[in-house]
Design a protein around this nucleic acid. Sequence first.
DNA 1: CAGCATCCCCTCCGATACTG
DNA 2: CAGTATCGGAGGGGATGCTG
Lengths: 103, 103
Amino acid sequence: MAQIGDKWSLLILFALVDGPERFNALKSRVEGISQRMLTQTLRDLEREGYVIRTVYPEVPVRVEYALKEMGKDLVKPLYQLVSWADQHQEEINRARKEYDEKS
Amino acid sequence: MAQIGDKWSLLILFALVDGPERFNALKSRVEGISQRMLTQTLRDLEREGYVIRTVYPEVPVRVEYALKEMGKDLVKPLYQLVSWADQHQEEINRARKEYDEKS
DNA sequence: CAGCATCCCCTCCGATACTG
DNA sequence: CAGTATCGGAGGGGATGCTG
C-alpha cells in the first residue's frame, strides 16, 4: 500500500492493462498528471518490478512502458478493490453527508 | 485508495477486525502511531462509514471503536491485496535490488 | 518525443503541551 | 482515559524552463 497507494500509481497501472503505451500516450490517458509525476511514478513502478521500460532508438526516440508479469498480477486484486469501491460509493457518500450534518 | 491509502487507515482497520477496541488499546495495537494520527484517522474512517464510535459515560469515560458492516466488507478485498503483497515481497525486493545495481 | 532540473507551496505527520 | 491545540520539519507534487 505504501508503494502503490500514492496519487498516481494505481491510475498508471490501469492505463497499461490494455497493452504497452508510449510516454505521451500515457500522459493523455492519465488525466491531470504532470510530466514530472508521470516520469517519477513510472521509475518507481519500474524499480519495484511492475513495469518494463523499452527504448526504441529511432528518430525521434520512442519509449514504451508495459506491465511485467508481476504488474499484471498485481492489477487483479486491485480491480477487486476498485470494483468494491464502485459498488459502495453511494453508501460512502451518504455516510459522509450524514456525518457532516451532525457536526 | 485516496481514502484508505494513507499511512494508518489500513492498519487501524486490521486492528479492529478481531472486535471493538478502546482508544488506548488501539494505540498499542497499531505500532508507532501517534495519538494525533490515531484520533484523526479514526474520525475519517468514521466519517466514511467504516467505523462506529461509541462513548460509554462512565468515570473515567470509555470509548470503543468498532467496524461497521461496510468496514468489515472493505477488509475482505484489502486482505486479498495484503496477501498478494506477502506472497510477492521477495520478488519485489529482488527487482528493486537489481534496479538499484544498474543505476 | 521523452525526459531532467529547479522553485516553491502546501499537506502530512510527529512532538509536545494542555483539558474534561 | 481520550482526546484537542499548536508548532515545525519533511516531502509530495505542480509549474515552468531547458535538453539530446
